[in-house]
Amino acid sequence: MTNVTMTVNGKSRTAAAEGRTLLVDWLREGLRMTGTHVGCDTSQCGACVVHVNGVAMKSCSVLAQEVDGAEVTTIEGMANADGSLGTIQQAFQDYHGLQCGFCTPGMVMSAAALLKENPRPTEADVRHYLEGNICRCTGYHNIVKAVMAASGQQVAPVAAE
């Protein structure tokens, strides 16, 4: 066990990690930040997506020790400074882009990375970018709408299509 320190959502945080400790376990067990989820063991579902030094990554496929010193943003760091929902989070609520909420942290983090790369994505762009994030509840329809709305594009309102 060695101590690993990262800047998580703007705050310096330290917790122990074994050589084999995954970033997601370090966050969930080490820091007790349970917003980041684990949905698979083959790096395929995207429930665990966080940003490491500004890049979206599956935190189940990164060792904590590998990213010692990194800047990490998780779902817990996505709200506005006053605690209100950030733009993407708000769009997910406004367009009913979540049901059980389990895939949601990863979806929001992936969507944030997409919009940074591509501020006005088409529907096809959104669907393509989210290939690594599985949602079993929503059928993606409202997730796609939420991401497009978060990018400032006009989308049909919920329940009036």
Binding site: T34, L85, L98, G101
Partner: peptide, 21 residues
């Protein structure tokens, strides 16, 4: 009516409380 879902706020901010949490 279609009010926004109240449960969404905790899910969208990482404050959901699932069994593994």
């Amino acid at each position: 009516a279609s009010p926004k879902r109240r449960e969404d706020v905790r899910f969208l901010t990482g404050k959901g409380r699932y069994t593994d949490d």
